[in-house]
Structure formats: structure tokens, C-alpha cells
Design a protein around this nucleic acid. Sequence first.
DNA 1: TCGAGAGTTCAACGGTTATCGAACCATCGT
DNA 2: ACGATGGTTCGATAACCGTTGAACTCTCGA
Lengths: 102, 102
Amino acid sequence: MKTTPAPRSKLTGKQFDLIAKALADPRRMALLEVIAGEEECACQTLRKEFPVSKATISFHIKELVRAGLVEARRDGQFLQCEVRRDVLQAYSAELLRRTSGK
Amino acid sequence: MKTTPAPRSKLTGKQFDLIAKALADPRRMALLEVIAGEEECACQTLRKEFPVSKATISFHIKELVRAGLVEARRDGQFLQCEVRRDVLQAYSAELLRRTSGK
DNA sequence: TCGAGAGTTCAACGGTTATCGAACCATCGT
DNA sequence: ACGATGGTTCGATAACCGTTGAACTCTCGA
């Protein structure tokens, strides 16, 4: 069992911005919460929880992956999504650091 | 010297969304960082740091206040801005809590 | 091989938002 | 009272973004 697959991420300025934008949309945030709830989560599962089209789900997942908040890998016809808690942690830390006033 | 003016804030769902949106714009985030840097910060100071109009500064400050991230009070003709670190802290905690997967 | 289901891509639309100049209000010094 | 300075408000504009249906690809099972 791999407990720490985390590549010890240090956020770049660009990634910080991407994450902030990814978290800004309530729907996307809600998707992230559902993904965080399940261990392994296919897009199809998300589809059942929200009244949105496949296209929209796909779009949001892509944004979350682009920000590094979610890791997705193909499993046959499914796309398994997993939340990157270490990245969330890094973002949170960086946010507080930037506003700590030196 | 008042060290803890913080009203022990517990975030509502709406405020959580407002904060996320407020943090999403890089310019606004940069403004917040400058405000966090100084103890007392007038809008005029911010004007010098960024190539934007007064109107834009005013707009962003209003958004930050609306989100609860900044507290502003009039001091004569100036508007003194102060960062609410407790709210940042609360947002950060809530973000991690929501993605902790129960 | 064929059809069904899972996801992606694309063009288009509608709503949000960041930005500005200009006009405005408020406060301070002279 | 007046001018200068700090901020606000108000259209207007341009860019961005969330959403969709439709057309497409890929994989699985019958």
C-alpha cells in the first residue's frame, strides 16, 4: 500500500493561480468534494450527483487536473479520479504564507 | 493593544464561495498580499504598486471586503485596509476539511 | 461485428467580470 | 471659500468562463 505517492510539491506561481481559479467555481468545488469522498471515482458517478451534461463534467475534471488538484488515470472505459490532498495542503500553506505579512 | 479582535469566525457556505472567488483573480490576490505586508494600508499606497486605475482598486477592495478578507475603515480622507488573517485561516481550514474525505 | 456506454472535442450562446474614463462626493490645508 | 487629493459610482466595453448538444473516439460485452 503506497501511503505517500506525493512528489513533495512546491507550488509555482502559475500553479497557485490555476488552483485558485479551479476552486473559484462552486460547481467545480462540489465535484472536488465528491471525488474526495470516494476512494476511486469515475466521472459517471459524478454525473448522477449533479444535473449537468457529460461535457460539463469532462470540462471541470480537465480543469482540476490542469491545476494539479486531481489525478486521473484510465481504467478501461472509465476515468478514475483521485484527489491530491498534498497539493491542497501546499496551496493552503502558500496562501497563508503570502498573507502572513512577511 | 488589541491582539485578538477576531470574532471567532465560522464560515457560511456563501462566504466560502465569495472568498474562493475573491482569491481567484491574480491582481486581487496581489493586492491582498500588499495589504498583508503593511500594518496600515491606504488605497493610495496600492495605486503606486500596480498600473491600474483608481476605479479598479476601489472595485477590488470592495470585493475583498464583501468576502470578509479585508476590513476597511475610514480615517479622514483615507481608507485604511487591514487583512483578516483569521478569516483566511478559517477558509483554509474549511477547504481542507471539505476535501479530507470525511 | 455490432451496439451500447464512457469520455472527449467543438462551436455557439449567455452570463459574469475586470477594466477604464468621467463625473461625482468627501476631506483636508491654505 | 477654494483647490487639491483620496475614493466612490456609473455606464460601457472587452475578455473570460460555464454550459450545452452534437459529432466523435474508444472500450467492453453479446
